[in-house]
Design a protein around this nucleic acid. Sequence first.
RNA 1: GCGCCGUUAGCUCAAUUGGCAGAGCAGGGGCCUUUUAAGCCCAAGGUUACAGGUUCGAUUCCUGUACGGCGCACCA
Length: 510
Amino acid sequence: MHDWNKLERIRLEKMRALQENGADPFPSSVTRTHSTAQAVQAFENAAEAETVQAVVVGRIRSIREMGKVIFAHLEDGEGKLQLFFRQNDLGDEAMARFSEHFDLGDFIEASGHMFRTRTGEVTLHVEQFRMIAKAIRPLPAAKEEEVDGERVVHSAFSDPEARYRERYADLAVNPEVRQIFEKRAALLRALRTFFDQRGFLEVETPILQPIYGGAAARPFVTHHNQLHQDLYLRVSFELYLKRLIVGGVEAVYEIGRDFRNEGVSFKHNPEFTMLEYYQAYADYTDVMDTTEELIAFVARELNGTTTITYGGEQIELAPPWKRMSLREALIESAGIDIDVHRDASSLHAAMRALDIEANPDASRGKLIDSLIGGTLEPTLIQPTIIYDYPRDISPLAKSRADDPDTVERFEAFIGGMEICNAFSEINSPLEQEQRFLEMGRAYDVGDEERHPMDEDYLRALSYGMPPTGGFGMGIDRLTMLFTDQTTIREVILFPHLRSRERDGADQEES
RNA sequence: GCGCCGUUAGCUCAAUUGGCAGAGCAGGGGCCUUUUAAGCCCAAGGUUACAGGUUCGAUUCCUGUACGGCGCACCA
């Protein structure tokens, strides 16, 4: 494995000493009559004279040796329980066995009876105990105390890199980390409940795709050996879900992983979880309504209220949300009327005149996009729907009948973050082919970010697709919102980090 | 990809203008029969991320590499 350090060698010695005494430090079967919480509950419920016996299992999180008695805390998935060892009751041999061979972090099985200490803590008076899993490596040291009912942690395991690389240790010593992922699970459950109750069909579509599409993003490429075929990890599910709409599935959703071969940041991970839904006979205004209901529903399921706090700001998620056209919003936030600037050079000049950074090579749509990100997005703390986007950055969204350069698309923002992207879907195969061609021209040949022409998708549309509204939402960012986290790494169990280079050839696997 | 900052004991952190690298916790040896960040005494613990350079002398100054954090760019 690796060279054990001094602390680990001492623990290995303790493990061997147990083995020499005939004990298995890693038995496969254990007894458990009560969780920690159940043991406390059973004692509280019992009559005064009644003895409550319990066998509990868990990890030793603290040890206080006081000569002929020892206090320790055992932690399981539900909480902590204090253990009390008394030499008079256990005998010299058992007492020595504990103090000499058991360390912080070890898993222990302890049986005894419940009682209340002088200071009032419900405690297990240990009669028998044994090792059920020895921890060779010490957990990151952290101590905690209660001050006015608040948990105060000292010397917490807090280095972000170490926490993400060793999430197991992070979870073992930082209980609030597990709460984030419990909330994430509850959020996913709430999303499914919402759509299931409305008759949506949950589906799974291919992750390995022969042609990627549905988003302007660089894909990961892989290869199928037997078929001699390059495949792409999906950047979106969009085109597959709309094929299902063609097939008569009128309401459909998928929750799954997307992969984008792009930068890593506090709000970007190369693989991230996405929710997309499509609904026949809905347009983007219907999707706006559903979006408001969805987020409010999730908030109530998670917290019992539609008010949340994010980054110190109180946010009210109950409908109706503020709705503004993108044009109005940019006039307000940037002081630029995009209708006045109908081409890239005019818009670029307007931005420069206001001292807003602008890439001279960018298209009009990309400039508008950067205006959104730079001037608008950070101001949208309360939920806001921004609608009617420029056509050239929306290759799958249907144009407005009254303005072909503007599409029926909206994005919702909460807490200064883009939460979702939605539109009335293009359902004319001719229009869609035209858009693919426009996108193809906008990028150099071979540019992986361009939308490749998906002939099979056009074939599907040519069978006829009803008017359809579609919606995509990043689940990681939604989790950030509901757990008040400012980095995506805190809501992904194993966020992507660069691999540690192993220095020196002597470390090679043997 | 670019910029700024960081990396010191198992964990959390110190170290004055360059002068023997320290503390708390954890760990080891003692004392202590109701403690809870238990307490008290003793001893130990380090290739200061890595590789070079400047210097009598480098944790400290310089260069490079690795990894991370933050910001920018890209994007969801």
